[in-house]
Write a protein that binds this DNA or RNA. Structure first.
Length: 423
RNA sequence: GGAGGGAUGGCCGAGUGGCUUAAGGCGGCGGUCUUGAAAAUCGCUUCCCGGGCAACCGGGACGGGGGUUCGAAUCCCUCUCCCUCCGCCA
């Protein structure tokens, strides 16, 4: 949510920036209703003032034993009038809120303009694409042949877009979770969290998943609960309605959670393998930062996410998303993309986003500067550190051997009882 | 699932229809004292919206929503969350 004052004062700029996102937006209605609301507000306030004065008079008269009935009957009328105006006012406020909630964040000035993901700009790369002297296989074939991934059995249990991990596959996934958590907690100053994997409406409003993107979510039937699509939701809402101390910022958290997504509208896309699942594991980074530091924090977070991939020895690149490819709540996003040898394509594995005060305003997360009374909204940042399923895919494909086995990256062997190869 | 008790400013906590314009304390900020600090002491300090260059003025908010009333933190209804006891349970 954007600051309503900012919206009124910079309407043209916001419309222009939103257009760059590929979204058509008009703020005319917002401006008109805002003015209307203000007029009503002034009317209501003056009537309420009158009422307050009269109430004082009634109290005084009664104390002095005088008759107050004329004032009281007069105020009955005023009271009724106030009620009508208040209803109208509330209606207008509700409309304004609805509009505000549906407007995406404004991209940061450093974000390149573009029309699609093709216009994302590569920022840096790490290492080289792996080379193979034999015909390579996609990860689902490798996983099936090694007996560590099973999509058919997952389909029996749940349906398509689910996976069962067996033996060394399950252990690899668990090793990666522990490895990532250890890197982020022991070296990168993030505090580990295990949050609920279910969140309520308010929390999903806070992050911007609701009200616009309900179709992406799994809702629990009969409850106002949703399965989390990412740990960003519970982590951001850790401090919903809170007031933080300036000294306590930045606050950094890392959480392992499963993520649940409907993937509605992606029928037929990435149907094979671990790339696009209804349920996947992810280690997520989260940071609450001072506004003046949030872009430094975004750089740090991206580098921290990359660190994991570097140590695994996987080839990746970092791109800055263009205006058209960014998410609803983001002001700037870096995607870290892993190289998938079998598809000969880079795939997003981490998305590090500075939401500035967009989510903080929705979730009401504020802070107080030392010695000042005015409250400000914090900046929130989130980034994957990193998604597990796609990492496993890249490991299987990148480190596959001619005999069908897969070499385990050195940093993981400690987490896998010394196992150096899955055969 | 049953029965009770709660939710008040950054935090703690008083307040059961109009002398509350939310007491008091803690914390925070500033002054006095001190070589400095601590202690003591004095003052300031809830947030949001509207108006104003400003001092200031007006309005709102006591978990959320609704109601009663001339007037609600206070009474009624409802929802959410928290606590205690009983039952069940990994």
């Amino acid at each position: 949510m954007l600051d309503p004052k900012y919206m009124l004062e910079n309407a043209d700029f916001i419309v222009k920036k939103t257009k760059a996102r590929g979204i058509k937006l008009s703020l005319d209605k917002f401006i008109k209703i805002s003015q209307e609301k203000k007029d009503y507000l002034i009317k209501v306030e003056s009537l309420r003032h009158e009422k307050n004065k009269a109430s004082e008079l009634v109290a005084q008269k009664k104390k002095e034993g005088q008759d107050a009935s004329s004032v009281i009957s007069e105020m009955k009328k005023v009271g009724a009038e106030i009620k009508i105006l208040e209803e109208k006012l509330k209606e207008l406020e509700e409309k304004l809120r609805e509009i505000s909630l549906s407007i995406p964040n404004v991209p940061h000035e450093s974000v390149p303009e573009g029309k699609s993901s093709k216009d994302n700009v590569e920022v840096r790369k790490f290492s080289e694409k792996p080379k193979f002297a034999f015909p390579i296989k996609p990860h689902w074939e490798i996983g099936k042949e090694l007996g560590i991934l099973d999509f058919e059995r997952a389909a029996k249990i749940a349906g398509s877009r689910f996976a069962v991990y067996f033996g060394a596959g399950a252990k690899l996934e668990r090793a990666l979770i522990n490895f990532m958590l250890d890197v982020h907690t022991e070296e990168k100053e993030y505090q580990e969290v295990i949050p609920p994997f279910i969140a309520n409406e308010r929390s999903l409003m806070g992050t911007g998943n609701l009200p616009k993107f309900e179709n992406d979510l799994f809702k629990l039937r009969g409850y106002k609960w949703y399965m989390i699509p990412t740990a960003e939701v519970p982590l951001t809402n850790l401090y919903q309605d809170d007031i933080l101390e300036e000294d306590s910022l930045p606050k950094r958290f890392v959480a392992y959670t499963p993520c649940f997504r409907r993937e509605a509208g992606s029928y037929g896309k990435d149907i094979r393998g671990l790339i696009r699942q209804h349920q996947f594991n992810k280690v997520e980074l989260m940071s609450f930062a001072l506004p003046e530091n949030s872009y430094t924090e975004l750089e740090k977070m991206t580098v921290d996410a990359e660190e994991v991939l570097k140590r695994l020895g996987l080839h990746y690149r970092v791109v800055v998303l263009c205006t058209a490819d960014m998410g609803f709540a983001g002001a700037k996003t870096y995607d870290v993309e892993l190289w998938m040898p079998a598809r000969k394509k880079y795939m997003e594995i981490s998305s590090c986003t500075n939401c500035e005060d967009f989510q903080a305003r929705r979730a009401n997360i504020r802070f107080r500067r030392k010695g000042k009374s005015k409250l400000e909204f914090v900046h929130t940042l989130n980034g994957s550190g990193v998604a597990l399923g796609r990492t496993v895919s890249a490991i299987l494909e990148s480190f596959q051997q001619e005999d069908g086995s897969v070499v385990i990256p050195k940093v993981l062997r400690l987490y896998m009882d010394g196992l150096d190869k899955i055969t």
